[in-house]
Structures are given as structure tokens and as C-alpha cells.
Write a protein that binds this DNA or RNA. Structure first.
Lengths: 205, 205
DNA sequence: GTCTATAAATAGATAGAC
DNA sequence: GTCTATCTATTTATAGAC
């Protein structure tokens, strides 16, 4: 932490605190104290608490979108691997996932961000490219209804499972919950993806 | 609103405000103003803001659990209908669902409630009875891993879909999003339930 | 039970010295 | 850029009259 400049310290600390306690539940004094910087430096660097939050959120969304784009370009993966990769990314950046959800559920902040919608920057990361994979790997033309079902079910699954893992099982000994281990969860993601694809292939057009 | 006593006005109003703006984002003054009661009455009836919140949460969880229990006793439904019923209940009480999720994601409040865990009162409503249905309708013995996958996937789907509907599509004209209508979503729930059951029936034991 | 008034703490933001 | 000190507003909670 000591080798980071003040601005970076604030960003790094606030990113976790906003996720853990929410925007209203986090005071600028909390951030300053834990980041070991002066309270006034927050307003100096970000002009307001609201603005600091927006920078953090935009940064998190940008990183996620960029990562998915890079992965797909580099590996040209099949649907199952792309979904698993996104799932793993959610697990690794689960603080951002939590913040994303808190924004979605906040009447105040959901107006400022388009999280959850079809928006290119704030929507489900890689939504378009994942949809193309589904269309390509389905054995037949995919209707709008089928696509909404397939895409919606896959995203719902990986976000929900990553969220539950972050909030309930991240710091719990896995001996008690073997089927909650990352490996088991990943296996479930693959299983569901295969199920959805098989359904698209076999059900009537 | 006028025929309600002060305590009921507070409960009814706070239940929505806590869901929309979160615990920290809602002040007792906001509640008093919208409920059209005096500020001091909140502390008189509930002794503290924290306690008011706990009463609301406990009430919501209790209603949900009781409703599922009553439905299953009365109709002795198959898995698909039970899941759809729970989904419809989530849609109808989506404010409570949002609060439930905010608690789950709050470091502070997740310690006071067991939301999301196997707890009988605060865990996934009807978890045990749904698990029994899955075991009964699967054509073979269901391993712990399979049960976790089936139960987890179904709950993840209906909670996530109900949540997204509440936050994004509840007050939006459905002409633009026909596949986001309640009917279409319900169809998706049935489709996924059938898929999961079929997978349990066909995959190797 | 309901009200007014107020206490006591904390919030975000800023002014000005260095 | 960083600090101390402070301003202003808002928070929860309470005391005491009615």
C-alpha cells in the first residue's frame, strides 16, 4: 500500500469499501482512515464522493469488458469456455460484481448507470459476442425468445452463483460444503451450458 | 393509508423505502414524511431504526415461508408448479426480494440474518420441500452434487429473473421487450425446470 | 400516544497555511 | 499536493409538554 500514490490508495480502498458497505454505508472518513490518507485528499483528487464512486464503477466495468474482449480475440473460444471464463472473472472480481448489483438495485444509482441493460459499456459484459456464439453453436435458427432464455439463464446462473460464493462461502472451509468449491461450481456452469445448448439443438424450431 | 394506525403506516412505508434506497440510504425522517407520521413515533414504536428494519425483514421472510408452506400443503404440487409459484411470489413481493439481496451483500447486516443459507427461517424459502420434490421426480437416486446443482440453478434463475424484472422492466412498456413479459419469463422458468429434471433422469448415475 | 424542541454525533465539503 | 481546522447540513435519538 505504501508504494501507491494517494490517488491510487483511495481508489483501491474505496473499491472494496463501497462493495462491502454500499455507497451510503461508506463515509469518506472511513475511506481516508483505511487508505491511510488525509480526508481532504479525497475531495482534492475526486472533487466529490459521488464522483469518486462513478470513477470506480466506470473503471470496473471497463476492465471487465476489456478482459472478455481480449480473451475472445486471443482464444476464439466455444460458448462453454467463454461462459466459464466470464464466471471465473466474476469470482476474481467479485467486489465489483457486488457493487454492480447494488447499483442495479438502487433507485438512485440505477438512473446514472445502465448496468444490467443492453448498454455496450455497462450492460452484461460480452453480451453480444456470447449471443453470437449461441447462435453459431445452436443447430438451428435461434428465435428471439430462445435467445433471451439461453442468454438470460446463463448470465443469471453465473452472476448469482458468483455472488452467493462471494457473500457466503468465500471464507468458509470447503470441507463442509464440497459442492460449493470453485471446482464444483465451475462444473455446474459447464453442465448448465451444455444443457442449454442441447435444448436449443433438440427442441422443435 | 389513512385507515392504518401509525405503526402500520410506518411498517408499510419503510418496507418500500428500505428496498428502494437501502438501510443507510433511508433516513427515519424520509419514512416519517412519506408515511405522514411524526418523526418521534418511529422511536416510540420501534425504539430504533435498526430494530424497525429487523422487524420488517423478519416479517417479510415469515410471510414468504408461510405462503410456500400453505401452497404446498393445499395443492401438493409437482416441482414445476411449485417453482413457478415461488417465482410468482417473488415477482409479487419483489421489494422484499430486493431487501433480502441487499442484506446478503451487506457485510454489516448479513451477520444479523442468515439470508441465503440453509436456515429454516431466513434461508431459501421452501428449500427442503423443493429438494424433496426433486428427489421424488428424478428417476434415480440424486447425489449431493446433483441436488446442489438442480436446487441452486433453479433458485438462482427465479431470484435473478425476478430481481432483474423488478429493477429494469417492471415499469417499462412490454411492446419493446415481449420476451420480458411475465408470461414469457414464467415460460422460461418452466422450460428450465423441465430441462433440469430431464438431465437428472437421463444422465448416468 | 403524539407532538415540539433539541441534544449529540456524524456526514460531505471547503478555506487557508505550508 | 497535503495538512489542520472548520463550516454547514443532516443524522439518530431523546426529553418533556400536552
Amino acid at each position: 500500500m505504501n508504494d501507491l500514490c494517494t490517488k491510487e490508495k483511495i481508489l483501491k480502498t474505496a473499491r472494496v469499501l463501497f462493495a462491502d458497505h454500499g455507497f451510503e454505508g461508506t463515509s469518506v472518513r472511513d475511506i481516508a482512515k483505511i487508505a491511510e490518507v488525509n480526508v481532504a485528499s479525497l475531495n482534492y483528487h475526486f472533487s466529490s464522493k459521488e464522483n469518486l464512486f462513478k470513477e470506480i464503477v466506470t473503471q470496473g466495468f471497463g476492465e471487465c469488458a476489456a478482459e472478455m474482449k481480449a480473451y475472445c480475440s486471443a482464444h476464439n473460444p466455444r460458448l462453454e469456455d467463454a461462459i466459464v471464463h466470464l464466471f471465473q472473472y466474476f469470482l476474481g472480481s467479485s467486489h465489483d460484481l457486488v457493487t454492480r448489483f447494488k447499483i442495479l438495485m438502487s433507485v438512485k444509482h440505477s438512473q446514472h448507470f445502465s448496468v444490467g441493460t443492453e448498454d455496450e459499456n455497462f450492460g452484461p459484459p460480452g453480451g453480444k459476442i456470447i449471443a453470437e456464439m449461441i447462435a453459431a453453436e445452436a443447430g438451428r435458427p435461434v428465435s428471439q425468445e430462445d435467445m433471451a432464455f439461453a442468454l438470460g439463464t446463463l448470465y443469471a446462473h453465473i452472476t448469482q452463483v458468483a455472488l452467493i460464493h462471494h457473500c457466503l462461502y468465500k471464507n468458509v472451509p470447503m470441507e463442509k460444503y464440497p459442492y460449493r468449491s470453485v471446482e464444483a461450481l465451475e462444473k455446474g456452469v459447464r453442465r448448465l451450458t451444455a444443457l442449454i445448448l442441447a435444448d436449443l439443438n433438440t427442441s422443435k424450431v
